[in-house]
Amino acid sequence: MILRNLFYCIFLCWCSPAMAIINGIEAEVEDFRSYVSIRAESPFPSHEGKEINACGGTLIAPRWVLTANHCWPAYQAVSNGGEPVFVGVNIGTDGFFEQKIQIVDYILAPAKIGHERVDAALLELAEDATEHGAIVANIFDGNLTNGTETTTVGLGQGLEGEPLLYYESVVTESALCDSPRVDFDELHDFCVGIPESTQRAGYGDSGGPLFIQGGPSGTEYQVAGIVKGGVKANATGIEETENIRYTDANKLRDWISAVTGYDMSSDNSD
């Protein structure tokens, strides 16, 4: 357990963008019932063994969650006979979940799609999350042109009972995320950020969803990206820029359909 907690601490502190959703705003949870939280025992002494959000995810089919490949330390125990791993679904206004469902399997995205790396994974759940009030997110199929407005939601490394937060930004030039200090795959990733903004994703938000409003009404929150990570401001420091890297969910549509057997072209909203 000590080694596992140490591994989580290293993972959470160094594999995610920054501390929580910085300057995030409390979200209207009814708009984001597709949000999923991967739960883990906190490695931080101040939390006294309580449960925290290790990574985010999106309900992409009734029993499947889309998250980041690099969140693997949070769910790898599923395959090695370790302790059960659960996700929280349908978060309420009080920060508590309607249900926690065990992860029974996971499938990492192919190491390469074409010739590029892809930071995505699918988690199979033990039961249908929609039976507990969660909804399946539709995938945004529009163009991710510069200036497209986005909404990212997450819990950071929050304890249960803390609110879901969001921040709004825009798609920006890939060059701002394509740094030699980070992994950026221009074919399957995109960059989001506003110059000098003080809002961005943070620790524990990796794997969580970026939404763009679309659908027939133009107001449905459709998942467009998976939080991949921040961008280092320099080679030696820990400071990061205002830009965040995201994996393009639309580029994964065929793979998701093949794994889940779910028709990703259907309208899943309720």
Rank of each mutant, 00 (worst) to 15 (best):
I2S: 14
L3Y: 11
L6P: 01
L12V: 10
A18L: 04
A20I: 07
A20R: 15
I25N: 05
A27C: 02
E28F: 10
S42N: 12
P45F: 03
S46G: 08
H47F: 07
A54Y: 02
C55Q: 07
G57V: 01
I60R: 00
I60L: 01
A61M: 09
R63V: 09
T67V: 07
A68R: 02
P73G: 15
A74L: 14
A74Q: 15
N80A: 06
V89K: 08
V89M: 13
N90W: 00
G92M: 01
D94Q: 09
D94V: 08
D94Y: 03
F97G: 05
E98T: 14
I101K: 11
D105L: 02
L108S: 14
K112H: 06
E116F: 02
E127S: 15
E127V: 12
T130F: 14
A134M: 07
I135L: 11
V136R: 00
A137P: 12
A137S: 14
F140N: 08
Q157V: 04
G161E: 11
L165N: 08
Y167E: 03
S169G: 12
E173P: 07
S174A: 14
C177T: 12
S179N: 08
S179H: 07
P180C: 07
V182A: 09
F184P: 05
E186G: 12
L187E: 11
C191L: 13
C191V: 10
V192M: 05
I194S: 02
P195H: 13
A201C: 10
G204A: 10
S206Y: 02
G208T: 04
G208D: 02
G215M: 10
G218C: 13
Y221P: 02
K228Y: 05
A233W: 02
N234E: 09
T236E: 03
T236N: 06
I238H: 08
E239C: 15
E239T: 15
T241M: 03
I244M: 08
T247A: 08
T247Y: 01
T247W: 01
D248A: 06
N250K: 15
N250G: 08
K251E: 04
S257N: 04
A258D: 03
T260L: 01
Y262R: 00
D263V: 08
M264H: 00
S265C: 04
S269W: 13
